[in-house]
Nucleic acid binder design. Structure first.
Length: 435
RNA sequence: CGGAGCGUAGCGCAGCCUGGUAGCGCAUCAGUCUGGGGGACUGAGGGUCGUGGGUUCGAAUCCCGCCGCUCCGACCA
């Protein structure tokens, strides 16, 4: 993308409504635009980030054996009456009526809908286990939306739902999701810690929330440094082995980890290598047994002819929230420092002197060589403005092409995350960026 | 849902108290000079002052209603 031809409205000044770093930077870097309280439009650069996060989430869900579906944003109130949640959900649910006076709602979550879909399609115990997920917009009419996309009213969430014949099977499904989540967050460039959690309105008796570390996080978290060394790679743990999953689960749940609400000073005192900091919740997993399958009449014939009521779990990742959370974890005074995996472009090409033949030639060559992975700053602006915008937008690499070194076919390569910079040949720069 | 504010040009703000035909910085456009960390100069364009009503000779300014938004707290992917 050529910056001169793109719609990336960066701001030099901070909009007054933005209080926290990620909100300020998302607005300043031209990623999103607020359209109403807690509701955001995603602009070209922001959408690329959102899609990158979504794709990593998708790949890890698929790897765990979950299958992607897509359920609608609008649901019928009848469905929620079957589970008994329609009256209990409260003001957070956005309710309305269609032209025929039918009661509808904009879905805040999909347990009822997936249970309804699954019960009409499943035929036998042989069909189990299953895990279905989708990545869809949700709406929760928060009393007080804030922090930009971190606490919006409309947000993109990945939610998965597992179906198993018994508790033991559901526990395996739960562990698979925990493993998939750890891999997902690792790929997204953030340190995530699973912490035992309350189950809230979803219900159930086994639940963990995934907290990622960021200096500006909402809550204080305490955890054992052992979490920093856990290997969650496919080489260490496989989805196909119940023993691996059990080992993994033990490893993830044994060291101390708690948010300030559940913090236990006595247990904390026993931890040898302590870590504490601020955290943001970006995922939450629940096992809730037959809470929905029972009232909604989901049951199948077992091998002995007896009817079985399946055990379920649900697993959420806040995709749009992650865009903000990743910025909270990776930024400085100048702007965003995107991890490679989620950056809208891998590199920015800064042409410090458009019109200079050597600069123009090298920039075009780099732009073509990076094939869609680069944002080319070809604007006729001053160098300082380009540096400032590149730092603000947070491209992992900056290929700085100036007349000083361009004559020798050399460029300056800057790594945004670390601030390191070095002069290299054009070829080396491209190879490094694409590696 | 309790408390506190704000709405004036794309963004950040002043003007309001004490009513008299709207201003500053940045951004934008044109030109000149510049050219490695948001440069300088000259000129130009851009505003139903959130909205409806009221008071007044006259309302951005005073009064009332409504709408929108933000912040603090309680609550939450």
């Amino acid at each position: 993308m050529r910056l001169s031809r793109s719609f990336i409205p960066t701001l030099k000044e901070t909009p007054s409504e933005a209080q926290i770093a990620s909100h300020r930077l998302m607005l300043r870097a031209g990623l999103v635009r607020q359209t109403a309280a807690g509701i955001y439009a995603w602009l070209p650069a922001g959408l690329r980030v959102l899609r990158n996060i979504e794709q990593i989430v998708r790949e890890e869900q698929d790897a765990s054996g979950a299958q992607e579906v897509l359920m609608p944003t609008l649901q019928s109130a009848d469905l929620w009456r079957q589970s008994g949640r329609y009256d209990g959900y409260g003001q957070e649910m956005l309710r309305f009526k269609d032209r025929h006076d039918r009661e509808m709602l904009y879905g805040p979550t999909n347990e009822e809908m997936i249970t309804d879909i699954f019960r009409t399609g499943v035929k036998s115990y042989r069909d189990f286990p299953q895990n279905l997920y989708h990545i869809q917009w949700k709406f929760r009419d928060e009393v007080r939306p804030r922090f930009g996309v971190m606490r919006g009213r409309e947000f993109l969430m990945k939610d998965a739902y597992s179906f198993d014949l018994d508790h033991a099977g559901a526990v395996v499904a739960y562990r698979k999701m925990m493993l998939a989540y750890m891999r997902t967050f690792q790929r997204l460039g953030v340190q995530a810690i699973p912490m035992a959690a309350d189950t809230g309105p979803i219900g159930g008796d086994l639940s963990h929330e995934f907290i990622i570390l960021a200096p500006t996080g909402e809550s204080q978290v305490y955890f054992d440094a052992a979490f920093e060394k856990i290997d969650v790679s496919t080489a260490r743990y496989g989805f196909g082995s119940d023993q691996d999953l059990a080992d993994f689960y033990t490893t993830m749940t044994t060291p101390y980890a708690a948010t300030d609400e559940k913090h236990d000073e006595a247990a904390w005192a026993q931890v040898a290598d302590k870590r504490e900091g601020r955290g943001i919740e970006v995922g939450h997993i629940f096992y809730f047994g037959t809470k929905y399958s029972e009232p909604m009449g989901l049951k199948v014939a077992g091998p002995d002819g007896q009817m079985i009521v399946p055990h379920m779990g649900s697993y959420g990742i806040g995709v749009s929230r992650l865009a903000g959370a990743i910025i909270e974890a990776h930024h400085d005074e100048a702007g965003i420092k995107w991890p490679d995996s989620v950056a809208p472009w891998r590199a920015a090409i800064l042409n410090l002197k458009p019109g200079d033949t050597a600069c123009d030639t090298i920039c075009e060559e780099a732009y073509t060589g990076l094939a869609g992975n680069a944002l080319y700053d070809d604007r006729p602006d001053r160098a300082g403005a380009k540096f400032a915008d590149a730092d603000l937008m947070g491209h992992p690499w900056q290929i700085i092409v100036g007349p000083r070194s361009a004559a020798n076919r050399r460029v300056e390569l800057k790594r945004r995350m670390t601030g390191e910079r070095e002069e290299v040949s054009v070829e080396d720069a491209l190879a490094r960026v694409l590696k």
